[in-house]
Every structure is written in structure tokens, then in C-alpha cells.
Design a protein around this nucleic acid. Structure first.
Length: 994
DNA sequence: CTACGTACGTA
DNA sequence: GTACGTACGTAGG
């Protein structure tokens, strides 16, 4: 959300084109190179309030500012761009697949800084450029060539030796960190040859970091000597036989081709198809508010001040309380405090543990007192609160509405909190108690008109320099979006808690308040009171009197702020900042957009199905009644169980733990397959199963879904819970669109009711076998990895390994069993469960498992290691570092322990897959925008599937984009050692698209 | 009206 | 054997 704002401003400035002429000076900054160098060369720096690593961001901002403002007039840039590497795969991998293959992933502290630096570039109103399949170096080479051709000068801001080949008349390099120019002489000093021969030297010497092979045994020194003697690489290779040293001669002859490939790898491409013309890179003034807002949000106070002065603007007040700083300056005066804050860049910060302690102390210092909250009904008081929040730099924020469903909720009020105990409530849509049929319009309490209040609040809620803190802020953001307000930037205490304590506790506000503040929140029911007569469903917040509403609403904001104080510092202390910043927080605006978009549903199709199902159910019911001889409630498992096992005395009955007969579908299936049963009994059971299926489809889907269609748009807006599962998966509700039927013919018909809008298509893209691929990767199983690399049928391969059956002409039953075992492994297999699934004996299942582990000992080792880790640490982790806690895993209760162990085995696999698709979703809007697919929107997520809507003509293009984003979603943090495959299809309804 | 168990839809 | 949400019947307030 913050990015959007900054992007807009840079787009505005991009309108004017400045052609390159003689005297133009183009600065091309190697962004990726700078990030790595700054990260390793500069001392680590963390944001005081939350410990987010920002050292590279700081170094980058300081360097960029210096370039823009402090270079000598003769060297001042007329054009400037910062250029980044787009992704891991480039055209060089087509030439040489192993190029840069051994690069380890960037360190954890660096990951959150990549997007921040892109934001920084935009905040400076400087063009931020990257292009898929090309490295930053190629873009730099291309821009440099264009600039020189047009008569301009070029400064490449980088110290990367790979760029030295570009130095020539008109092109120099500048080391942004050492503030040192690199010209022809410096290149000769480094390589022993002039710039135009650098690639020949590199082709010989290779580069172990980039995995450029070169010629073994030849380093830069020897290479330079050889090239100087023979003139260039081709001549050298042609005349290699003349070389005196025998070793060197042999190597050069043997590896001649490898040297030529190496030259191709190091040679920069000077004719990249540019998306942004060089004329569009003209230097623009920064947009003051956006830039200072960004710097302040990073909490660089000295730099903010310096840049503010340079821009002739007032420095914004620093964020009031960095936890560590406030600790340090406890007994100081306000002015001392501000002075202390001004030095916070030098301030190393309290230890993370001390920051946590301080935050907790602040949050708990003042008791929660509902009588102290202010009700705001005048513009002046509201403006005063907005000013206070602006000065503080953060504000807890909560909305009260008429409905729990944000896509249909109307705003009733907004509460704010700026410090523990300092909270207010702004009523906006209270109707007063409704004692009559007219909604009590006459009793409407005095309130600020909603449009006026929102006009005052909007600048605060959209202020890039003020952090808005919410508890499940997705809800509030969605409500505010419908009132035209973008809440940005934000933190979410629910998501912070989820990153910290997933598996330890739930993350609703009442649970968190109880756990972290020892406070029992006022419940909604308490606030509403037990007004007699009124039905609960008709009680909305709008009817609540203002005094009660203020106590309830302002308490929520107060509690949210206190929770933030307690929880935020823990992110850094417990090493999950990256999880929060990379997997949780950026997902919020994406989900808001998806929920807001909704999916079109054809009411008529559902209605038709519903009545067809109803007729069929009646027929089946009559048939059953005929067979049984009397009526009974088919929907009652209790009555059915008694009928089948007590009255008809059918064999094979099992009881549930509450002593009831079990009547689950797969049990009835087996019963019906029993040859000894008489025909009527089997007919009864089969009819019963059919009735259940049809009734389920009708009640859960065809009858229920139309109720969720928004009458004005014809679309269904589900709600995604971001913090309700233990593993990191999302959950969908109201309605749940993650369990729309697909397995049976009747069920699939329901999917045909999910349709694309006029002129549009639905695109469904789903990961193939993502969890098994994750398993192959994390457990490092050679056969599985090979099978995926070769694109084999993984279940057939498993069967073949286990039973020695060739894959060709394998009986379906054999493959089915192997498939069940593969799933069983993911679920933390047990003989009991496998036996149940396959309807075989426990002994047989036990044998299967034994055979499996003999064939894949690595899987057993992985499972044992996971269990051990869980017992030792109380948690397991996904490949992205998400922690899933199992505090009870050492319980003495064997069946419970077994359950938790299986869950702990499953969690890293399911959770890693969930993290991968989260990353894909986070990147998707940007990728769609970059591909100029304006018509495309992401609508749904079903664990391993994403559903989009797109103009018919763009469907194929979207498929390409979605597939690329999904298949590379783990990178660069994690590159799986198996390929990831995504299937995608477009059609006019969900059934055909899947 | 709520809480729980059972059944069943999805990945 | 993992992870969910919803509908329904039933027991108890």
C-alpha cells in the first residue's frame, strides 16, 4: 500500500522526457551490487522500534543522496537510474546452466531489505529498473552504449569488476562506498589489461563466485600476461600450441571451448530490449513528503534531518518512542529525549531481550480504565487527536461496523489509541436504541457527519510516515477501502502474534489480551447488554448508546496498542521478523484486493441444481422408507446406526467413542460390498449413501451459496483467515470456497456456477504435487528428486520401487496403494491410519510401511529427525523459517503424543508449501501490473491453486505470468532441489478451468 | 440459543 | 495418518 503511493508519485514525474545530448551525464547505479556490498561492509543497523535490519537501506539512501546533491557541478547527473537484477534465471543459464548456480541464498537479515531499497529508490523519485532474464549489468551496458552514442557521459556507480569491461572514453565507474572513480588506469591496475581486453582475461581466469569455469590453473595474472602477449583470446587459443610451459599449453588446448563459453558468460549484452527509454531517466526532484516519510519510517533520524535540510523542508518529528530509546531516556526531559532520539542511528539499541522487557513494561504500566476514554463529536477534538497521532508516528486503529462480514459492513465508528490508556472513539453511524420499527431515527445521538470525519482522518490513515496498528487490520482495511481510504503503512498484532506464537495459542484479541496483558476484554454481548425482546441477530453496534460504545471500542484500540508494544519487539528477539515481513504483512493488501474482487456466481445454475437435487432426494427418501417399512430421520446418524446394527443386525458395526454406532461413508461402502448381505440391505445402504451425498451438496452448496451473492455485483466475497491454521495455510469462510466439490460428477456441476464476467475468462493455476516435492527437497531423497527431475509419475515410481512392478502396465490398484502411502508419509504415517485408508489389516499396512522405509531410508531418517527436533525445541520450522509450536509434544499421553508427532512431521511440509504459495500471491499483483495485464485480477486461493479472472484476449499471457511467478515463488530465499511444476488453464467457468 | 459430536466437502 | 469449515441432529440451558 505504501509502495502504491510512492509509485504513483514517481509515475507523475516520469512524464517529461529529457533527451541525451552532449554534456548529459547519465548515472547508472548497480542496485543489487550495492546492496550486497553495503550489507557486508557496513556495521549492522537495526530499526530501533522493532529490530528490523536496515543497514543496507541506510547506506544506500546516504549514497544516493550524496550522488544527487553533493556531486561537483561538472559531474552532477542529468539522468539517473538504479538498476536491479530481476530474478535468478537469465539468458546466461541457457548458455551455461550452472552459471551462478552455487550462489548461496542471501542472508536472512538482507532479505527484507531488498523491497525496502526499491521503495527507497522510488521515494527519491529515481527510476527503478529491472528486466526479467537479464542481469543488471546487461541493462547498464545497454544504457551506457545508448548514452555514449548520443554524445553523453556515463558514470556507472558500482565497483563490480564484471562492469569494468564497459569503461571507455565517456564511461567511467564510481565506487559509491569508497567514493573513488574507476577509469582506464584503475582497470589496468586490477586486470593488467585495458578495459577492452577485460572479457578475454575473465574468460581465461573464470570466476568461482559466479561459477564461470574459465581455464583451470589460470588466474588473472597469467591470463593478463597471455592476453598481452597474444593480443586477444581467439589468437591465443589458435596459437596455444606455441606456449612453452607444457601444463599451461595442455590446459589451454583442452579447455579452449570452455574459455569461449566463459567469454560469452562474462560479455555483457549491450542490446537488451529496454522497456524504459533512456530519455525517461531525467533527474527529478524528490517528492518531499514521500521521501521524508520513508526515511522517518526507517527511523533514520540524522539522515532524515540532513535530507530535510537539503530539501529546504522541515524535518518531520522522529517516531516518538523507539522502545530502547525510551528506556534509556526514562527520567529525561522531553528535549533531552528528542536529542537522544536524534542520535539513534548511532544508538546500538538495547539488547532484543531488553527491548521486549521494556515494551511489556510500557504496555502494562497503566491499568486499563474504560472510564478514561474520550468520545469525539467535534471536528476540533478529532483534529487534535489526528495531530497527536501524527506526532507520535503510530496509532492503533479499529473500526466498528454493522456486520462481521467486511464486504457488506457499514461504518459505525472508529477508535484510536496513541499511548496505553490514551484512546478515543469517534461515533459516525449510531442510530440510537431502536425501540420502534423506524430504527430510532429520532434518537440519533449527536455525531460528526461521517464525510467530515473521514476528511479529517484520511490524511492520517494514508500518511506514509504514521504507522497504523490494527488487530486483524485486513478487516478494517477492507471496510475503509469501501469508503475510499487506503490504510497504509500498517502493522497487525494478530499477524505478529501468528509469526511468534503459531501453535501456542489462538490470535484473537481477547486471547491475546488475556495472555499478554492479563486483561479480560469487554465482550460484544456485554457491550450490547441483554436488551429483552430484541433478537440477537438484529442487534447491531449502531444501536449502542455512545457511552457504552466508547468503552467497548476505545478499549479495543487501547488493547491493540498495548499488544503491539508487547509483541513487536519479540519479532526481532525471536528471529521471526523475516517471517512477518516476508510472509504475513505483505499478504494483507493482496487478500484485501481478492476479497474485494469476489467471484461471479450464476444464481440460476445453483437454483436449477438445487431443485434437481431436492427432487432426487425425495425419491431416494421414499425408496428408503419403502425398504425400511417406516419413516425415520435420514439425517440422524444415531437413528441410522440403530436401524442398521441393532434392528437389522448387520455385521461389522463399530462404535464411536461416545458409544454411538459409526455410520461414516467409507464404513457403509465396505458394508455394501459385503457379499453375504442380502440384496435389500445392500440397496438400502447404497441408497442411503446416495441420499447423503445429494443432501450434502444441496444444503452446503446449492442452497447456501446464493445467500452469499452480493445483489449489486452478482459476486461472492469469501473471507480468508490469515492466522487461523497452525501450518500457515489460509482458511476460507463465509462461505468456504476452499471446499467446493470436485471429485464426483454431481459435485463438479456446482463448479460450473462459478463463472467469469462478460468478456472475461477464469484462469486456474495449480501446483502439481507440491507437498511431495517439498518432501523430496527437505528430506533429500535421491530417487524422489530424480523422479521429479525426470517428470515421472511419482506414485507409479513409488509403487515400482516398493513392489518391484514395472511402471509400464502397472495395475491401477498397485498405484493406488502407493499413492495412499505417499500421502500417508506426508501425514506422519501410522499402520492404523494406512490400514483404514486402504481397507487392509493393520499387519499388512505395517508391512507396507516397513518396505517403504527400506526403499527410502532417508524418509524415515527425516521423520525421526523432525520428531527429535520437535521434542527438543517444542517447535518445527518451514523452509522459510516459520515456526510451528507444539508445546504439548512431550506429553505422557501416548495417543496424544503420537498425534502431535504426526502433526509435527506434517507441519514443515504443509507449511512450506503454504509459504511458497503465499510468496507467489504477494508477488502476483506486481507481476500482473508489470506485464500490463490490466484486466487481470486474482480471485481465489485453494491451498495449491490460484484462480484469476482476465479479459479473454489476455488469458494466455496471464497463464504465462502466473506460472512463472508460482514456479519461482520460493526464490531467491529458497530454490528447491526439485523442479516445481504448475498446471494452468483458462475457461469460462471454474469446472472447465480446473 | 449454545455446545458438542458426527459426517463430509476440499487440499 | 495432516490441515480446514459447514450442516445437521441432539442434549442441555
Amino acid at each position: 500500500m505504501q509502495q502504491n503511493k510512492i509509485e504513483q508519485s514517481s509515475v507523475v514525474g516520469a512524464a517529461e522526457l529529457v533527451p541525451i545530448v552532449k554534456g548529459s551525464h547519465v548515472y547508472l547505479v548497480d542496485g543489487s551490487g550495492y546492496i550486497f556490498r553495503a550489507f557486508h561492509a557496513l556495521p549492522p543497523l537495526t530499526r530501533p522500534s522493532d529490530g528490523l535490519p536496515v543497514g543496507a537501506v541506510h547506506g544506500f539512501c546516504a549514497m544516493l543522496w550524496k550522488l544527487l546533491r553533493e556531486s561537483k557541478a561538472s559531474e552532477a547527473p542529468t539522468h539517473i537510474a538504479v538498476i536491479f537484477d530481476a530474478g535468478r534465471e537469465t539468458f546466461r543459464n541457457d548458455i551455461y546452466p550452472k552459471y551462478k548456480a552455487h550462489r548461496p541464498p542471501p542472508p536472512e537479515e538482507l532479505l527484507p531489505q531488498f523491497p525496502l531499497i526499491r521503495d527507497a529508490v522510488k521515494a527519491f523519485n529515481v527510476a527503478c529498473i529491472e528486466l526479467d532474464r537479464y542481469e543488471a549489468d546487461d541493462l547498464i551496458a545497454t544504457y551506457a552504449r545508448e548514452a555514449v552514442n548520443a554524445g553523453g557521459d556515463v558514470t556507472i556507480v558500482s565497483s563490480d569488476k564484471d562492469l569494468m569491461q564497459l569503461v571507455r572514453p565517456g564511461v567511467t565507474m564510481f565506487d559509491g562506498m569508497k567514493a573513488k572513480r574507476i577509469g582506464r588506469d584503475e582497470v589496468i591496475e586490477k586486470f593488467g589489461v585495458p578495459p577492452e581486453k577485460v572479457i578475454d582475461v575473465q574468460a581465461l581466469s573464470g570466476d568461482s563466485v559466479d561459477n564461470v569455469p574459465g581455464v583451470p590453473g589460470i588466474g588473472i595474472k597469467t591470463a593478463a600476461e597471455l592476453i598481452s602477449t597474444y593480443g586477444d583470446l581467439d589468437t591465443l587459443l589458435a596459437r596455444a600450441g606455441e606456449i612453452k610451459q607444457p601444463k599451461r599449453r595442455e590446459k589451454l588446448i583442452e579447455f579452449a571451448e570452455q574459455a569461449r563459453i566463459s567469454r560469452q558468460l562474462v560479455l555483457l549484452k549491450e542490446d537488451v530490449p529496454l522497456e524504459i527509454a533512456i530519455d525517461a531517466l531525467g533527474v527529478r526532484d524528490p517528492e518531499v513528503d514521500a521521501l521524508l516519510g520513508f526515511l522517518r519510517a526507517m527511523e533514520f533520524s540524522t539522515l532524515t534531518k540532513r535530507i530535510a535540510e537539503g530539501l529546504g523542508a522541515e524535518a518531520p518529528p522522529p517516531l516518538a518512542i523507539s522502545v530502547g530509546a525510551s528506556l534509556k531516556s526514562k527520567a529525561q526531559s522531553t528535549s533531552d529525549k528528542i536529542e537522544a532520539l536524534a542520535e539513534e542511528e548511532a544508538f546500538e539499541g538495547a539488547t532484543p531481550a531488553a527491548a521486549v522487557a521494556a515494551g511489556t513494561a510500557i504496555a502494562r504500566a497503566k491499568a486499563i480504565d474504560r472510564s478514561k476514554y474520550e468520545t469525539i463529536t467535534t471536528r476540533t477534538r478529532l483534529e487534535e487527536w489526528v495531530r497527536k497521532a501524527g506526532q507520535t508516528g503510530y496509532v492503533a486503529f479499529d473500526t466498528e461496523t454493522t456486520d462481521l462480514d467486511a464486504t457488506r459492513a457499514d461504518l459505525v465508528g472508529i477508535s484510536l489509541a496513541v499511548a496505553p490508556g490514551e484512546a478515543c472513539y469517534v461515533p459516525l453511524g449510531h442510530t440510537g436504541p431502536s425501540n420502534d420499527l423506524f430504527g430510532g431515527a429520532d434518537n440519533r445521538p449527536p455525531q460528526l457527519p461521517i464525510t467530515e470525519a473521514l476528511d479529517v482522518l484520511r490524511p492520517l490513515l494514508e500518511d506514509p510516515s504514521v504507522l497504523k496498528i490494527g488487530q486483524n487490520i485486513k478487516y478494517d482495511a477492507l471496510v475503509m477501502k469501501r469508503y475510499g481510504i487506503d490504510v497504509t503503512p500498517f502493522d497487525d498484532t494478530m499477524l505478529i502474534s501468528y509469526a511468534l506464537d503459531g501453535g501456542r495459542n489462538a490470535h484473537g484479541m481477547d486471547v491475546l489480551a488475556e495472555r499478554h496483558l492479563g486483561h479480560a476484554c469487554m465482550t460484544f454481548a456485554q457491550a450490547m447488554g441483554q436488551a429483552p425482546g430484541a433478537k440477537k441477530s438484529e442487534k447491531t453496534f449502531a444501536a449502542m448508546p455512545l457511552d457504552k460504545a466508547t468503552e467497548y471500542a476505545a478499549e479495543d484500540a487501547d488493547v491493540t496498542l498495548r499488544l503491539w508494544k508487547v509483541l513487536k519487539p519479540r519479532l526481532a528477539a525471536e528471529h521471526v521478523t523475516t517471517v512477518y515481513e516476508m510472509l504475513e504483512r505483505p499478504l494483507v493488501p493482496v487478500i484485501v484486493a481478492m476479497e474485494h474482487a469476489g467471484i461471479k456466481v450464476d444464481r440460476d445454475i445453483l437454483a436449477r441444481l438445487s431443485s434437481a437435487f431436492a427432487q432426487r432426494a425425495v425419491r431416494l427418501e421414499e425408496e428408503i422408507n419403502g425398504l425400511v417399512g417406516h419413516k425415520f430421520n435420514l439425517g440422524s446418524p444415531k437413528q441410522l446406526g440403530e436401524l442398521l446394527f441393532d434392528r437389522l443386525k448387520l455385521p461389522g458395526g463399530k462404535k464411536t467413542k461416545s458409544g454411538q454406532w459409526e455410520t461414516r461413508a467409507n464404513l457403509l461402502d465396505e458394508l455394501a460390498a459385503n457379499e453375504e448381505l442380502d440384496g435389500d440391505a445392500r440397496r438400502l445402504i447404497n441408497t442411503m449413501l446416495e441420499w447423503r451425498q445429494i443432501s450434502k451438496l444441496r444444503s452446503t452448496y446449492t442452497d447456501a451459496l446464493p445467500e452469499f451473492i452480493d445483489p449489486s455485483t452478482g459476486r461472492i466475497h469469501t473471507s480468508y483467515a490469515l492466522a487461523s491454521t497452525t501450518t500457515g495455510r489460509l482458511a476460507s469462510s463465509d462461505p468456504n470456497l476452499q471446499n467446493i466439490p470436485i471429485r464426483t460428477k454431481e459435485g463438479r456441476e456446482i463448479r460450473t456456477a462459478f463463472i467469469a464476467d462478460k468478456g472475461m475468462k477464469l484462469v486456474s493455476a495449480d501446483y502439481s504435487q507440491i507437498e511431495l516435492r517439498v518432501l523430496a527437497h527437505v528430506a533429500d531423497i535421491p530417487q524422489l528428486k530424480k523422479a521429479f527431475a525426470d517428470g515421472l509419475d511419482i506414485h507409479a515410481m513409488t509403487a515400482s520401487e516398493m513392489f518391484g512392478v514395472p511402471v509400464k502396465d502397472m495395475p491401477g490398484e498397485v498405484r493406488r496403494r502407493a499413492k495412499a502411502i505417499n500421502f500417508g508419509i506426508i501425514y506422519g504415517i501410522s499402520p492404523f491410519g494406512l490400514a483404514n485408508q486402504l481397507s487392509i489389516s493393520r499387519e499388512e499396512a505395517s508391512d507396507y510401511i516397513k518396505t517403504y522405509f527400506q526403499r527410502f531410508p532417508g524418509i524415515r531418517d527425516y521423520m525421526e529427525a523432525t520428531k527429535k527436533h520437535a521434542h527438543a525445541h517444542g517447535h518445527v520450522e518451514t523452509i522459510f523459517g516459520r515456526k510451528i509450536h507444539y508445546p504439548e509434544i512431550n506429553t505422557k499421553n501416548p495417543s496424544m503424543r503420537g498425534f502431535l508427532e504426526r502433526a509435527a512431521i506434517n507441519a514443515p511440509i504443509q507449511g512450506s508449501a503454504a509459504d511458497i504459495i503465499r510468496r507467489a500471491m504477494i508477488r502476483m499483483p506486481g507481476a500482473i501490473e508489470k506485464a500490463k495485464l490490466d484486466s487481470a485480477r486474482m480471485l481465489l486461493q485453494v491451498h495449491d491453486e490460484l484462480v484469476f479472472e482476465v479479459a479473454e484476449a489476455d488469458a494466455q499471457k496471464l497463464i504465462d505470468v502466473a506460472r512463472r511467478v508460482m514456479e519461482t515463488a520460493g526464490e531467491p530465499a529458497v530454490k528447491l532441489s526439485v523442479p516445481i511444476h504448475v498446471d494452468a488453464k483458462a475457461a469460462y467457468n471454474w469446472d472447465e478451468a480446473h
